[in-house]
Amino acid sequence: MYSPTPLSAARARVTPCSDAEPGGLESSLLQLVHDHHHSSLRLRELTEKKKEEAIRNAARVSDLLVDAVNGGVQECFVNEKRIELEIRTLAVTIARFMKQTDHWLAASHALNTALKEIGDFENWMKTMEFDCKSVVAAIHNIHQE
């Protein structure tokens, strides 16, 4: 897209003047300077607008890039929090199972001890029975003599 520069537009508006016109050359030069000044101002305004637009676009691109990066970071953060919550829950469950296992171990130890005591009691009863039979046999032998 071609647009003539303000300076070329100003040059196109300058009309040739003859030396016969009083102040014609001077007024043409003044007109040329005036047109150049206005075209410079328009060009400066246009440049400033384009600069502001470029800054807005750069800020928008920057915001989009930050959002894109932060989206992944935020997802990782949410996942990390979920994992930490699961770890805490698992730690509580493990602690509960450890207590339950300790209770089972204590109960099985008590049962084992009781079984040993029953075995010891049974052995003691057999010994007592044998001793009683020996005493009865001795008394029976003494009584028959």
Rank of each mutant, 00 (worst) to 15 (best):
L43C: 12
K51M: 09
A20G: 11
Q31K: 10
I94G: 03
R44A: 13
P6A: 14
H37Y: 11
C76V: 02
R60W: 02
S28A: 07
S134W: 03
T89K: 10
E122F: 09
H36G: 13
T127Q: 10
F121R: 09
A68I: 03
L29T: 00
V92Q: 01
E26M: 02
C76I: 08
I55R: 03
D67H: 01
A95M: 01
T47P: 07
I118P: 01
S39F: 01
L32D: 02
H36W: 12
F121V: 14
F121L: 15
Q100L: 13
D120I: 06
A95I: 04
I118S: 01
N112Y: 05
H37F: 15
C17D: 05
W104T: 11
T47C: 04
T47V: 11
S134T: 11
R82F: 05
S27C: 09
H37I: 14
H109F: 14
A110W: 00
V14P: 00
E117R: 05
N57V: 06
T101L: 12
E84V: 06
E26Q: 06
K99F: 02
H38Y: 09
L65E: 06
W104R: 06
P6R: 14
N123A: 15
R60C: 12
E45P: 04
L7E: 15
E75S: 10
V92P: 00
P6Y: 08
M98I: 15
H103K: 05
P6W: 12
F77Q: 13
A114V: 03
R44H: 08
A91H: 06
R96C: 04
P4R: 13
S8N: 07
N123T: 10
A10L: 04
A20E: 08
E53M: 01
